[in-house]
Design a protein around this nucleic acid. Structure first.
Lengths: 302, 302
DNA sequence: CAGTGATATTCCTTTTGAGAAATATGTAAT
DNA sequence: ATTACATATTTCTCAAAAGGAATATCACTG
């Protein structure tokens, strides 16, 4: 691996050599390169030093390459073409892209929201592979480590997004909170007030002692509290508990719409004004300029 | 063909990029390149401008390449390896060389002298092809035009070697002149003197009116002349005429030795002191540094 | 929140590269 | 041969680029 020695030689001279090989004349080469004759002539003498070969000899009809120059000519053109490609801006063709993307989504709302997008992605880029992962507390760390390409995150969840640098973020959409109760729940026959709501036992996501959700924070500001009777790990479990008990579940609009078709539950509005949950898409700076990434991200709309 | 635009970009930066990709650290890359840390940092910022991509993002454990940098990494290494080969001094391996060489030799003496060399050449470089051509007056022009690789020339023959520039020359060997007459020639029974020699009719090579050979020039200096009765085009013809007539043929030592085995002729020394013929090997400057050529020329010894 | 280890930036010096014009070289024509 | 013409090379000057040392900035760590 000859980096040390490569760094000693001036690769720019090789472009000049290519021009000389093509034109076989210092003057014409200098025109091609927008330089003066003398500049190219000096480059040629530097090339002669570099290669230890005269490279060209003067004749009546311009320069005649030495056999060394001719063997160089065969090699050089494709190399320079490759180099040119390297510095050219990337091009991105969805039909041609065969990359693997890992995307971490919160278990509920985003799956629903982005199932259509997913179909579109796979349709316009048939060779692309997508790995969908459930959002965990480690998702952002994996994002920072380059192991995950995209993470969607509800803004009431602290996964350390403020501690991790080098992240980019795009606000996706907001979803308002709603209350889910089982069909024929007694409360449906009574007026639906804050008092009625707090009189019910609640189902929480995460640990029973968690009080980090928007709901709890808003209640706390009003000096109120709710009774989380059951805490479960995911939305499906929560909804199943909701269906089979008199407990209520503070859920999200998207999920509620989905759950009402799947479980025997109905939704009620939040009895107090609660800030809606915002979803943010996160990605690592390393992918920010990546055309394929930009294309992928474009499917995650507001 | 992007030479104009290629010439605007600084290819040297790519070596720096390769070092950065390998080391993933500005500091370590600078050590590899024998540069200061600030120099490499500035090169990196120039690379960022060049590619329009951050290329690396700072993390706790050094630089993390962007996906653009990673795709560049895949392409760059082989390109730089190729570039390195281009500027490396040529290597020459006879076993590997498959070139075609054209060699023009005077019809007689050199064929004999170099038949052994030829065998050696083909033996040590089995893939080499050699085209042997008879020397003509145009041989040196073809040499100048790059159509012939080597020309051997007796120095009494003017093929314009002084008019043509860019030629290299190596003195090969000298051969003295001898007289050939048929077996049982009457002169063999008499003393062999200059007078006896000039009394005979002579066989010339070339036109009857030519008086350019060393023999004729030497005689002219002494105020003498010889009678060229028959002029032929080549040495075989001359020797056949010599065998079947009483004419004599001023030939060369090498040829005489060969001819005495083939024809019924015998050789006599030149009756006066005549400068021996020198043979020179000519080649074009374009091949002077060419290792394969140098190797080929090495078989043409003094 | 200071400390550590790294990169980026600033300022200054040195080197390199480009151009203009003069000079040398080589070719072709007179 | 001599001259004229075209092209390459050299010389000299100047501007631009690259390098180094010191400093600022950043990101993680304890």
């Amino acid at each position: 691996m000859p980096i040390q020695e490569l760094s000693r030689i001036n690769l720019n001279l090789l472009v000049c050599l290519q021009a000389l090989l093509e034109e076989r004349s210092v003057t014409r080469a200098s025109e091609r390169l927008n330089l003066s004759q003398s500049a190219v002539s000096k480059s040629l003498s530097r090339l002669r030093e570099l290669t230890g070969d005269p490279l060209f000899t003067r004749t009546a009809h311009g320069l005649m390459p030495t056999s060394r120059a001719l063997t160089i000519q065969e090699q050089l053109k494709p190399i320079l073409d490759e180099l040119w490609k390297v510095v050219q801006p990337q091009v991105f063709d969805p039909l041609d892209c065969d990359r693997h993307f890992s995307i971490a989504l919160p278990e509920t709302a985003n799956h629903l929201k982005f199932q259509n997008s997913l179909a579109e992605i796979l349709q316009s880029a048939p060779k692309v592979k997508i790995k969908l992962m459930n959002l965990t507390l480690k998702s952002l760390e994996e994002l920072a480590a380059g192991k995950v390409d995209l993470v969607a995150l509800p803004d009431d969840l602290d996964c350390g997004q403020h501690r991790i640098s080098g992240l980019h973020r795009k606000r996706l959409y907001k979803d308002k909170l709603v209350c889910l109760v089982r069909e024929n729940h007694p409360c449906l026959k009574r007026p639906w007030t804050l008092e009625a709501c707090l009189a019910l036992g609640h189902i929480g996501i995460g640990a029973v002692t968690d009080r980090v959700s928007i709901t709890d924070q808003t209640l706390a500001k009003l000096g109120l509290d709710r009774d989380i009777a059951v805490a479960v790990g995911d939305f499906h479990s929560a909804t199943q508990v909701c269906e089979s008990t008199d407990l209520m579940f503070v859920s999200l609009g998207n999920w509620a719409a989905y759950a009402e078709g799947l479980y025997r539950v109905v939704s009620l509005p939040m009895p107090i004004e609660v800030e809606p949950i915002a979803y943010d898409l996160y990605w690592h700076e390393m992918h920010h300029q990546d055309l394929a990434h930009q294309w992928l991200r474009s499917y995650f709309r507001v």
